[in-house]
Design a protein around this nucleic acid. Structure first.
Lengths: 101, 101
DNA sequence: GGTTCTAGAACC
DNA sequence: GGTTCTAGAACC
């Protein structure tokens, strides 16, 4: 299996939430949503995400949601099993800094 | 009873949520939160409210909340029995317009 | 007593 | 299948 292949598996409706999320997070133009460095966690900047993805102005994309509320987006994440994790940002860097002392 | 009296009843802790809400909504400087025309419904402009009340920059007021998340503010409203109502704005005006035709 | 994260339920 | 509003539960 090629983990660089970011196409969707057969049988997944490309218009449903998981597929939209997949495309959004894989598009580097979307600064509000991205992978963490290990590709295991989705990082979301609420303010940027609201501005670039959820705002009515951003509604030109086919990946736009019907909602404009961040809380509704979170509800969808939870319905599909996503859990919030504590910010892993900088922790490894900090540890590395300590090791490098 | 003087309904114009907007002081707090005895026994209400002025630092708890209902008292803070009371002062916020009665302060005309807070454009993000106000009474409806009949004084029965609290009108909240989420964007303005976040900017003027919840944002860390606005945290100088003693009526500031510990949270910066609008959803946590809504959780508090619900815990104290507040319910969201459909926007009553303009409906009466429109009816009046029709009557006046 | 307040805040956060997630889920239930009703509705669209 | 998605969205909205409210509540449960755990934590601070």
């Amino acid at each position: 299996m090629d983990f660089r292949d970011r196409s969707l598996p057969d049988g997944i409706n490309p218009m449903n939430f998981p597929a939209k999320l997949w495309r959004l997070v894989n598009n580097p133009l979307n600064e509000g949503i991205s992978w963490d460095i290990h590709g295991e966690v989705i990082l979301i900047d609420q303010h940027l995400f609201e501005k670039q993805i959820l705002s009515p102005r951003a509604n030109t994309s086919p990946d736009a949601f019907k909602t404009t509320n961040f809380s509704s987006f979170v509800r969808q994440l939870n319905l599909y099993g996503f859990k919030k994790v504590d910010q892993p940002i900088k922790q490894l860097d900090t540890l590395q800094d300590i090791i490098n002392l």
